[in-house]
Computed example of a mutant assay.
Amino acid sequence: MAEFSLPSGCDALPGQSILVVDDEESVRTLLAEFLQTLGYRVRLANDGQEGVHKAQVLRPDAILMDVRMPVCDGVAACRLLKATPATRDIPVIFITAASLPQERVAGLMVGAVDYITHPFDLEEIRLRLAIHLKPPPDEAREQGDPAAPLPSCTARLDVALFEAARARLLDDLAHPPQLQALAASIGTNAKRLNAAFKQCVGVTVFDYLREVRMKTALRLLSETSLEVQQISHALGYGSTANFSTAFRERFGVAPRQFRKARHSGVD
Rank of each mutant, 00 (worst) to 15 (best):
E3N: 14
L6K: 06
S8G: 11
S8Q: 06
Q16A: 08
L19S: 00
V20D: 00
V20P: 00
V20K: 00
V21M: 03
D22E: 05
D22A: 03
E24T: 13
E25P: 02
E25I: 11
L30D: 01
A32R: 05
E33F: 14
Y40V: 10
R43K: 07
A45S: 06
D47L: 02
G48E: 08
Q56H: 02
V57K: 04
L58K: 07
R59C: 14
A62W: 03
I63S: 05
M65S: 10
R68L: 14
M69A: 10
V71K: 10
I93E: 01
T96I: 03
A97V: 11
A112Q: 01
D114A: 09
I116M: 03
T117Y: 15
L122P: 00
H132S: 15
K134R: 09
P137V: 12
P137H: 13
D138W: 07
R141M: 08
P146D: 11
A148N: 13
R156S: 12
D158H: 08
A165D: 09
D171F: 14
D172F: 12
H175E: 13
Q178G: 12
Q178P: 03
A184V: 08
I186Q: 00
G187E: 01
K191D: 07
K191G: 10
L193V: 13
A195K: 09
G202V: 02
G202E: 05
V203F: 05
V205C: 00
R219M: 15
L220Q: 08
L221T: 06
T224F: 10
S225R: 13
L226M: 07
V228W: 05
Q229Y: 14
S232T: 07
H233V: 09
Y237L: 05
G238C: 07
S239D: 11
T240N: 04
F247Q: 01
F247G: 00
P255T: 06
Q257H: 08
R259K: 05
